[in-house]
Design a binder for these strands. Structure first.
Lengths: 121, 121
DNA sequence: ACAAGTGTACTATTACATATAGTACACCTA
DNA sequence: TAGGTGTACTATATGTAATAGTACACTTGT
């Protein structure tokens, strides 16, 4: 459910943050569902518990998860802000991608056909 | 022509590499045109000459520029490989973006309309 | 009451990539 | 010859990431 690539340039704690967000967006994690325990996930991913804790703290600061001492960490009840911000990010990414495409001679119609091609799969 | 953001998380030398590539792709830099001198650009960007050198070395290893000791660094004569690899990167980025979009409920038709909207500008 | 599992909070240390500082050399051109 | 160019090298500073280790408070199930 949550995976990390130790060789990646992206910090592990950030990969965990993204991984949790994607799991929520994909419905793999539902609102109020419990996240893996800090120590347990650390063992599973073979990394330090502090790294997991850092990721959870960030997620908590963004109100995407909430933690109850002694019980565990859970997906927030309302994940609509996560969905909204992710939507905004995707659209912003798309705009810079269009600029990138234009720069190397990929037309907008070509982009559209790639998307439609992808839709078939 | 070449700009860097010192506050960015992306290393300066990498920003320079990208900046040069984009300038070439955009036609701001033409084949065989001379790049800014290492020391001069360092002064202009207010960074260390070694950082520029590192960027130029990377560009040279990718055969995007060539350097002549005593003369300067120049855009390669044939930039087709740069164009090709950039095309490949854009298309690969587009595919992950589509996955990201699907994950938060953005349909492919919505993506297409954003692209068409962008085309008007 | 107890033990096990949970989050939380620290400090210290290590590791690594980035960036800078400084110097030196070889080459080209005017 | 002088000034500009790329190149090469060592040393140092810096910041972030990650680990190591410990400790405490809380909840749950037995």
């Amino acid at each position: 459910m949550i995976t990390v690539d130790l060789k990646s340039r992206i910090p592990i704690y950030e990969q965990i943050v993204d991984s949790v967000k994607n799991a929520i967006l994909s419905g793999i994690l539902s609102p109020n569902e419990q996240l893996p325990a800090v120590r347990k996930l650390a063992v599973e991913l073979a990394i330090n518990p502090n790294t997991i804790q850092k990721a959870y703290l960030i997620l908590e600061a963004q109100e995407i998860v909430y933690s109850i001492p002694g019980k565990g960490s859970f997906v927030a009840d309302d994940t609509s802000t996560l969905v909204d911000s992710h939507r905004a990010k995707v659209l912003s990414d798309l705009k810079s991608l269009i600029e990138d495409a234009t720069r190397c001679g990929i037309s907008q119609s070509e982009l559209v056909s790639v998307i439609k091609e992808f839709a078939k799969e």
